[in-house]
């Protein structure tokens, strides 16, 4: 009969109306500022710089200002200036560090390419999303002080990734240390055995860091090179 469907529908909505009062499980929304959902581990928003030591963030940045991320960044929102001097990194090795490291997160498109190309695991994706400011020009341009966050924070937001990165870094450092030790031992042995040839310097990062510049360098010319000659107008 005409109308039974209407009554069935009205019953469904009435059930929902009553149910939403006595059964809080039904409510599908969260009241955001007070009540926060746990973000999934793979959620990413904007990049941040990893520091080893929370007490001295500027001193222990993993970043060595290699500028790969700056060159790879599709919207070109990263700006880096290398330092003139060198500082010891977490492993005690002297490295160049970024004197200026700015990211304009109003331009950033959260593509994570900077994270993927970074050979030092120095830049990672953050989960902060409450970034609204009243001033879109300076408020959203983050400098290295605002960008640097300790490794413990990285562990907190992406535990799986962070454990994997830490394990890899530790293994690399161990391997480098062993290699250095072996090289030193070999050099000492050689020096001891005979007047040896010049010992090769320790090169732990280069095998990793050498390929990216090779791929990154060709990426530079296109923006610098003059635009291609104008194509002839299409003939109708």
């Amino acid at each position: 009969m005409l109308g039974t469907g209407l009554i069935k529908g009205l019953m469904v909505t009435a059930k929902n109306l009553a149910g939403s009062f006595h059964d809080p499980e039904r409510l599908v929304t969260t009241e955001y500022p007070e009540q926060r959902t746990v973000l999934p581990q793979n959620y990413r928003n904007f990049p941040f710089l990893v520091t080893e030591n929370a007490e001295d963030p500027m001193g222990t940045l993993r970043c060595v200002a290699c500028q790969i991320c700056e060159k790879e960044c599709p919207p070109q929102c990263i700006y880096i200036e290398k330092s003139k001097d060198k500082k010891a990194d977490a492993a005690g090795k002297m490295q160049i560090y970024p004197a200026v490291f700015d990211i304009d997160i109003s331009v950033c498109m959260s593509c994570q390419i900077c994270v993927e190309v970074c050979p030092f695991d120095a830049i990672k994706m953050d989960q902060v999303f409450e970034i609204a400011t009243a001033d879109r020009f300076t408020g959203l341009l983050l400098d290295r002080g605002q960008l640097s966050k300790p490794n413990s924070y990285f562990h907190q937001i992406h535990p799986t990734d962070a454990a994997e990165v830490d394990g890899r870094l530790a293994a690399e450092r161990k391997a480098a240390a062993e290699k250095a030790k072996a090289a030193a031992a070999a050099a000492a042995a050689k020096a001891a055995a005979s007047t040896a040839s010049a010992p090769s310097p320790v090169k732990a990062p280069p095998p990793v860091s050498a390929p990216p510049p090779a791929t990154a360098v060709p990426a530079i010319p296109p923006p610098v090179s003059p635009p291609p000659p104008p194509s002839p107008p299409p003939q109708p």
């Binding site: 109306l17 409510l27 929304t29």
Partner: peptide
């Protein structure tokens, strides 16, 4: 409010 409750959300509060 009622529409919200029927759709299982609290409505303006």
């Amino acid at each position: 409010k009622v529409l919200g409750r029927i759709q299982n959300r609290p409505g303006p509060n």
